[in-house]
Design a protein around this nucleic acid. Structure first.
Lengths: 253, 253
DNA sequence: CGGCGAGTTGAGAGCAATCAAACCTAGTGG
DNA sequence: CCACTAGGTTTGATTGCTCTCAACTCGCCG
């Protein structure tokens, strides 16, 4: 089920991580080396880490989509976040403790496993790497807060619109969009589990969104016909994603 | 509105922080000194930090209840977490960036403001303090995930029951319970904003919970008549709180 | 006494869930 | 080449949990 391999053509992976934008060439090469040490390819819908595990490594998503989810005792499932290329799953490098949730792939995923001690060393040796890790983690937390807000306060229509906006912005930031289109491999059931809705209601809501001329979603391809209007109806404020690389300087609130 | 003072009778504050349980006496005294450097008392329902701010310090709650919340453009409000004595608000010591949410008091709050550089130094000088900070932060994130799950998957009854369980366990861990009773200063509107329900529905749901003999909530006092049963109906799994001090060793899953 | 915050109650409406079935498409195997 | 299957999407009918709006109670305080 699992393949280990090394990809010569994936040099400068870290170039794709906006968080690492201001590393030197030399630093970037060290980082790439560490990331290439152990690369795996996992099939779709496959567990990466299960609740209760105590993984000794963290995972960088190199390609594909993955998810973090939590299951209640009676089977109800909540997706807590999605991971795409460039994302770090669980940057908790310092505190070893049992996972209180699970990670699994959505599509086929290519990921780099980095031993926690290695990453810790790296973070200490290259301060900018440590900073990048912490920033990545802060963004993940901010996203989690926004999801709580979304599920707690937004309507079904707004929630789904918000999810579309967030994923599109994140993908665009990682250079994974083509114009107003991007890959979007989630099923309507996935969207339902992420937004706290039922699959049937997600279906009807997306149809409505299509009729409103906001988006198109077919064959795992999402097209944003009117991003501005979608952001408006979603009450989407991109601030929480901290995408602006120069954010430390100015702040548009 | 704000009073600065020093409390001689609050020595060994850090004793109350389970996270700091395994510090030496000497370390604890240093920590106490830092925490006592700048102590404020804020009135109820008062902003501590507003969205957009770039605070140069973090806040330790010494006494009282506070909350983290987020407001949508149209005024809808989601409470993201509650803070009680011993909690650290926003342990983001390393990455300076604008707040994407706000903090405010619920009751009168006594808090210690610690300059981020000071805390950073302290964390580097005393490894255990750094570890405690990271652990505290990890718990906060785990709670956030659980809240997302709660709002997304649990019914109104289960959500409120879950909140009661969580706060009771956290308070008990901090030594702030008396038997099966604890202070519980949240109004029904607060509970509504935290659970994504309306105040009216919270009212009816709590009445039902009372009729079921599970809890009593009067005069800001919460009594758990049957904690086990409440945990069961809430599908409450305390694991995510990482309260077990020896958790690093064994794991009951 | 008046006003305010918090809690309670009632009636009605609506958003989203549930249950069930049909459809569609791609992949499989005979 | 075509049934057959499975996963995903769509549709319809119905139910119900939760919201909305509104009024009323109670205790407290200036």
């Amino acid at each position: 089920m699992t393949a280990y391999c090394s990809f010569g053509n994936r040099s400068h992976l870290s170039l794709h991580l906006p968080a690492f934008a201001n590393l030197t060439e030399a630093d970037r090469e060290i980082l790439d080396t560490v990331l290439n040490r152990r690369v795996r390819v996992l099939p779709p819908r496959h567990d990466i880490i299960r609740e209760g595990d105590r993984p000794g490594h963290v995972c960088f998503i190199l390609d594909g989509w993955a998810q973090r989810y939590k299951q209640l005792a009676d089977g109800r499932r909540q997706i807590l976040s999605f991971f795409v290329a460039g994302d770090l799953c669980d940057a908790n490098v310092f505190i070893p403790c049992a996972m209180d949730h699970s990670l699994s792939t959505i599509t086929q995923v290519q990921l780099a496993e980095v031993a926690k001690p290695d990453l810790r060393e790296l973070a200490e040796a290259i301060p900018r790497v440590g900073e990048a890790l912490r920033r990545t983690e802060q963004v993940a937390i901010a996203i989690q807060r926004e999801w709580t807000t979304s599920i707690g306060q937004r309507t079904a229509y707004e929630r789904i619109a918000h999810l579309f906006c967030e994923m599109f912005m994140r993908l665009r930031d990682g250079g994974a969009t083509q114009g107003d289109t991007c890959d979007f491999p989630l099923t309507q059931s996935d969207i339902a589990d992420a937004t706290g809705l039922t699959q049937v209601h997600v279906n009807r809501t997306i149809q409505e969104m299509r009729r409103d001329g906001l988006i198109e979603l077919r064959n795992r391809q999402l097209t944003m016909h009117d991003l501005d209007r979608l952001m408006a109806v979603a009450l989407f404020n991109p601030h929480y994603l901290h995408l602006d690389p120069a954010e430390s300087q100015h702040q548009p609130v």
